[in-house]
């Protein structure tokens, strides 16, 4: 088999009600995407624990995506607002650590926004391909 182009590995945290549904809708609409994404389903973006985000990076994720329902649409009243506040802390941490800011991204995607989901995956993957593997990725891991 010919040597293929390096494919980054991106971990996306998706909430059950919106962004996971957005990924489903992208599939139903056959919006083709790079095969870089690995989705972790949680019930609410409020469950996305910064610790899990660190772990994804330390394990070897080239980027981590935090996604959830649009603000105001949370299935659990306001979990996504809490996710947003936590994300801001994470964002500042990533910046201070010296990791490229593009490696951590937040996006609100509703269950109907399949195309938006697919475009998001395409854009992030293209950007990460430019940046190359994450400097936190352990040697020999993919």
């Amino acid at each position: 088999m010919a040597e293929k182009e390096w494919e980054p590995k991106i971990v996306a945290f998706c909430c059950n009600w919106c962004s996971y549904g957005g990924a489903d809708t992208a599939g139903m609409g056959r919006f083709q995407q790079p095969s870089s994404l690995r989705i972790i389903r949680v019930m609410c973006s409020g469950r996305i624990d910064p610790m899990h985000v660190f772990n994804a990076f330390l394990e070897g994720a080239d980027a981590v995506l935090v996604t959830g329902c649009h603000l105001g649409d949370c299935h659990y009243v306001n979990g996504n607002y809490k996710a947003e506040v936590r994300y801001q802390f994470l964002e500042e941490m990533v910046k201070q650590l010296g990791l490229e800011p593009e490696r951590l991204q937040l996006n609100w995607i509703s269950a109907s926004e399949g195309e938006k989901f697919a475009n998001f995956v395409r854009d992030v993957t293209a950007k990460i391909k430019e940046l190359g593997p994450s400097p936190l990725k352990p040697e020999g891991v993919n």
Partner: peptide, 10 residues
């Protein structure tokens, strides 16, 4: 969840 994340990498 951490096990699931770790499962993504080898």
């Amino acid at each position: 969840l951490l096990a699931q994340i770790r499962g993504a990498f080898t």
